[in-house]
Lab assay of single mutants.
Amino acid sequence: MEVRTIKVFTTVDNINLHTQVVDMSMTYGQQFGPTYLDGADVTKIKPHNSHEGKTFYVLPNDDTLRVEAFEYYHTTDPSFLGRYMSALNHTKKWKYPQVNGLTSIKWADNNCYLATALLTLQQIELKFNPPALQDAYYRARAGEAANFCALILAYCNKTVGELGDVRETMSYLFQHANLDSCKRVLNVVCKTCGQQQTTLKGVEAVMYMGTLSYEQFKKGVQIPCTCGKQATKYLVQQESPFVMMSAPPAQYELKHGTFTCASEYTGNYQCGHYKHITSKETLYCIDGALLTKSSEYKGPITDVFYKENSYTTTIK
C-alpha cells in the first residue's frame, strides 16, 4: 500500500517557510505537534488534498525554529505562539472599519479597549522592536488589523473576551517599542525636605499616572512627601515624541487643539466601556464603527496623549 502524501510549508514567522512532505494517514499533531492554519487549530486533523502548498504555523520545537521565533517575536515564552494563534482565530472574524481616516474595530468580545489602543497607536510616533509587531502594525494602518490585535493580546497575556485596560495595554506595548531616546527629568520640591531631581528613561519617561493635564504637570502637581507634608512635583525636561497622561476616570474637559487623542471610560472596574476622542479640525468621538463630532467635550476621561518633541522648564 502506497503512502499518500502532500507537500506543505511549516513556519513560526510566515517569513521562513520549511518544506514538509506530510503523510495523509496521520494527523498534523502526530507529525508536527500543535499546528495552526489561519489561526485555526488543526492539530487533530489529517492532511487533505486542499492543504497542498498551504502554510501551517507550528510551535518552535527545534533550534532553527526557536531562533526564527525569537528573532521575529522577541520572546522565548513557549506558550506565546499558541496564544497568538488562538487569538487570531477570533480577531480574523472582527470587522476593521476605516473611521475618520483611522483603522478602528467594530465592537465584539469586549474589544473596546483594543480599538482605543489601536486608534491611539496610529496617532503617536512609535516604532516597535519585534519585527512581528512592526509588520502587523503597518498592515493594521492599511486596514488589516487582525494579526496586530492578536499579537497585542498575546504580548499582554490576554484572551479574547476578557476586559482590558488601555493604560495597561499601552504599557505592555511600550515595553516592546523603541523608547531608548526618551528621557524625563522631574523635580520634587518640599518646604521641609528641599528639592530632589529624578531622571527617568524609556517607558517611565512617557507615562504618568495622577493627572490628565500635561500643562498642569509642567506647572506642578501636589504629591505627598515622605515627611508627610505636601510637596510639588513638576516637569523639568521632556525628550520624547509623545507623552501619555493618565488618571482614574473623572469628568474632564478636553479643549480642541490642546491634545492629540484621549480615552474615555464609562462604567466601573468590573464592567465598563471605552471610547476614543481625537482632536482634528474639530473633536471626534470614535466608538467602534461609530463616529460623532463636537466642538467641545466633557466626560469621564482616563488617558490623554500629547505630541511632544523637546521641553525644558522655565521655572527657576
Rank of each mutant, 00 (worst) to 15 (best):
R4A: 13
K7M: 13
V8R: 04
V8Q: 00
F9V: 07
F9G: 06
N14L: 07
M24F: 09
M24A: 12
Q31I: 15
P34Q: 10
T35V: 14
L37K: 11
D38T: 09
G39F: 09
A40N: 13
V42Q: 13
K44H: 09
K44E: 15
K46N: 13
K46P: 12
P47K: 05
S50Y: 11
K54H: 15
T55D: 03
N61A: 12
N61D: 09
N61V: 12
D62R: 08
D63W: 06
T64G: 12
L65S: 11
L65V: 07
R66M: 12
V67I: 14
V67G: 12
E68F: 04
D77I: 03
D77C: 13
S79M: 15
G82D: 14
M85H: 06
M85R: 07
T91W: 03
W94M: 03
V99F: 14
T103Q: 04
N111G: 01
C112N: 04
T116W: 00
A117C: 11
L119D: 02
L121I: 12
I124D: 02
P130S: 06
L133R: 03
Q134P: 04
R141K: 15
G143Q: 05
N147H: 14
F148G: 02
C149T: 12
A150D: 03
L151P: 05
L151R: 04
L151H: 01
L153D: 05
A154D: 04
Y155T: 01
Y155M: 04
T159L: 09
V160L: 04
L163F: 14
D165Y: 05
D165A: 06
V166T: 07
E168D: 05
E168M: 14
Q175T: 08
A177P: 01
N178C: 09
S181T: 11
C182A: 11
K183Q: 15
V189F: 08
C190F: 04
G194S: 03
Q196K: 14
T198Y: 13
G210C: 00
G210L: 00
F217Q: 02
K219I: 11
K219H: 09
V221H: 09
P224A: 15
C225S: 01
C225V: 01
C227S: 02
K229F: 08
A231W: 00
L235V: 11
E239H: 12
S240D: 01
S240Y: 01
V243K: 00
M244Q: 02
M245A: 03
M245P: 01
P248M: 15
T258Y: 08
F259W: 01
T260H: 07
S263L: 06
C271E: 08
H273W: 01
I277S: 00
T278Q: 09
S279Y: 02
T282V: 12
C285M: 15
I286P: 00
I286A: 00
T292P: 02
I301R: 01
D303Q: 00
E308D: 09
T312R: 15
K316E: 15
